[in-house]
Design a protein around this nucleic acid. Structure first.
Lengths: 188, 188
DNA sequence: CGAGGCCTTGACCGCGGTCAATGCCCGTGG
DNA sequence: CCACGGGCATTGACCGCGGTCAAGGCCTCG
């Protein structure tokens, strides 16, 4: 489990073996059931996750009570409710397991500790931020230029695993459309 | 002009006086006319800007030929076509002066140089990325939860200077609606 | 002064949201 | 093991927000 994590970390920054050991020791294993909430709206995001198996999603609830899924992490991916993790202010997002999930978590404290101790970790974090920024940049592009159908078809092409693994309810909220609309699109 | 820049930099990271001098010396003054293009789609974003007077915007052009404004910088603000600046890959965004503009620009080369030379500059850049991320996060929230009218009213409340300084054409594309819709909203 | 861009206003319409009814699957307890 | 209940998916009918197209007026700048 920690070996896979090391591999992932290495793709994002240049760590030596001693640093990697120091880092992965700070990631604690955790096992959560499907539908359990790891972070509740209003609380502060204090953990950063690596997903071994299963999956998490972050979402928030709009004024009119609808869930809006922002980010999905499946096997071998990393992330958290980043805005609150960055600012250490109360989150508007929930973090929820979309499946029975085995993961590794590092605390915010340890995360920022590493930021001061390990030079490459700053690069790692910079890289995370750059990717998160670019990801959202793309999402905005899609929201303002594509129709519901085009967004669905693009995901189908680029990330079909999402369509297999997510419930229609979650998938629809991720694609920013209603369940009914997604259902109609799926049946062509 | 460089004094104002120093003030802005200091709000984003903890520089000492010598560092500040070293940094601002790398910012070169530039004067651009309204409607001139500082970065063309397809080119690589190689400068990071501080706006002294006037303003810039970044926008891209969608498949069906419409301009979509992502980010606006007015007096005393900083920014650039960030995605391309980060990746040093061709930009899908333009950078355009929305007014006659006096600005200071630092090259990507010098920017990343500072990232290695000055410890606090890494914090500065981290801060920029965190803010850019949070800004976009908010924008996505607004796009998926608010109506055109609500987006306009929110901007009116939180950033009325945008509504005064931007043309309807640019303002509409910033708010992700057509000029006609914005016009109807303004007349209540 | 003329031309071209920008803004406004009107008429129309289609995408996708809303509401409602029904079916289906699955976990839970008797 | 079956009966029941609740959540999820599907389908239909309806409708409203905001996009599209078009025409006309106004302002700016060469």
């Amino acid at each position: 489990m920690t070996n896979k994590l090391k591999t992932v970390l290495q793709t994002l920054a240049d760590f030596d073996e001693r640093e990697l050991d120091q880092i992965v020791n700070l990631f604690k294993p955790k096992s959560v059931k499907k539908n359990s909430i790891l972070l509740h709206e209003g609380n502060i995001s204090r953990e950063f996750y690596y997903i071994h198996t299963g999956g998490l999603r972050t979402f928030f609830i709009s004024k009119n009570g609808q869930e809006k899924t922002r980010y999905v992490m499946l096997d071998n991916h990393i992330g958290t409710a980043l805005k609150s993790f960055i600012s250490q202010k109360p989150s508007i997002e929930f973090v929820e397991a979309i499946d029975d999930t085995e993961l590794l978590a590092i605390s915010h404290q340890d995360f920022y500790h590493l930021n001061e101790e390990i030079h490459s970790w700053k690069n790692f974090y910079q890289n995370i931020l750059e990717r998160a920024y670019s990801f959202q940049n793309r999402k905005i592009e899609e929201l303002v230029t594509l129709t519901a159908k085009q967004r669905y078809e693009q995901l189908l092409q680029e990330n079909p695993v999402f369509i297999q693994k997510l419930s229609n309810k979650v998938l629809a909220s991720y694609l920013d459309m209603r369940e009914e609309t997604l259902s109609r699109l799926k049946s062509q």
